[in-house]
Amino acid sequence: EVPFKVVAQFPYKSDYEDDLNFEKDQEIIVTSVEDAEWYFGEYQDSNGDVIEGIFPKSFVAVQG
C-alpha cells in the first residue's frame, strides 16, 4: 500500500533525468511501486522543493 516511508541506506547518484538522487539517511515517501526492483518517490530538499523520481529498492529500507 502506498504511500509509505523509506530511509536511504546508501547514497544514490544517477545521470538519468527520471531517477531520484539522494544521500544516505534521506527519508523518502514512496508514492508508487514501479516493479520488483524500483520505487517511485519524493522528498523535500533543503530549499523546500519537492524532488521526485525512480530509485532502486535495494538502496533503501522501509520504515516501521
Rank of each mutant, 00 (worst) to 15 (best):
E1V: 13
E1H: 13
E1A: 12
E1C: 15
V2H: 05
P3E: 02
P3W: 07
P3N: 05
P3T: 04
F4C: 06
K5R: 12
V6W: 03
V6N: 00
V6Q: 02
V6D: 00
A8L: 04
A8W: 04
A8N: 00
A8F: 04
F10K: 12
F10R: 14
P11W: 06
P11D: 09
P11E: 09
Y12H: 06
Y12N: 03
Y12P: 00
Y12C: 05
Y12R: 06
K13G: 04
S14N: 03
S14M: 03
D15I: 11
D15Y: 10
D15Q: 12
D15E: 13
D15P: 12
D15W: 09
E17F: 09
E17Y: 09
D18W: 15
D19Q: 15
D19E: 14
L20R: 01
N21E: 08
F22C: 04
F22V: 02
E23V: 07
E23D: 11
K24Q: 08
K24G: 04
K24I: 08
D25H: 10
D25I: 03
Q26L: 02
Q26M: 04
Q26C: 05
Q26P: 02
Q26D: 02
E27T: 09
I28K: 01
I29E: 05
I29A: 03
V30I: 04
V30M: 03
T31M: 07
E34D: 08
E34H: 15
E34P: 15
E34A: 14
D35M: 08
D35I: 07
D35L: 08
D35F: 08
A36E: 13
A36S: 13
A36Y: 08
A36F: 10
E37R: 07
E37L: 11
W38D: 00
W38F: 11
Y39Q: 01
F40V: 06
G41H: 02
G41P: 02
G41S: 02
G41Q: 02
E42Q: 14
E42P: 01
E42Y: 15
Y43T: 04
Q44E: 12
Q44A: 11
Q44L: 14
D45Y: 04
S46P: 10
N47A: 08
N47W: 07
D49V: 14
D49N: 14
V50S: 06
V50L: 12
V50N: 07
V50G: 03
I51P: 00
I51N: 10
I51F: 13
E52D: 09
G53N: 03
G53R: 02
G53Q: 01
G53H: 02
G53S: 02
I54W: 15
I54D: 02
F55I: 02
F55G: 02
K57H: 05
K57R: 13
K57M: 10
K57D: 03
S58K: 12
S58E: 08
F59I: 10
F59D: 02
V60S: 02
V60Y: 03
A61H: 11
V62L: 13
V62P: 11
Q63C: 14
G64P: 12
G64E: 11
G64V: 12
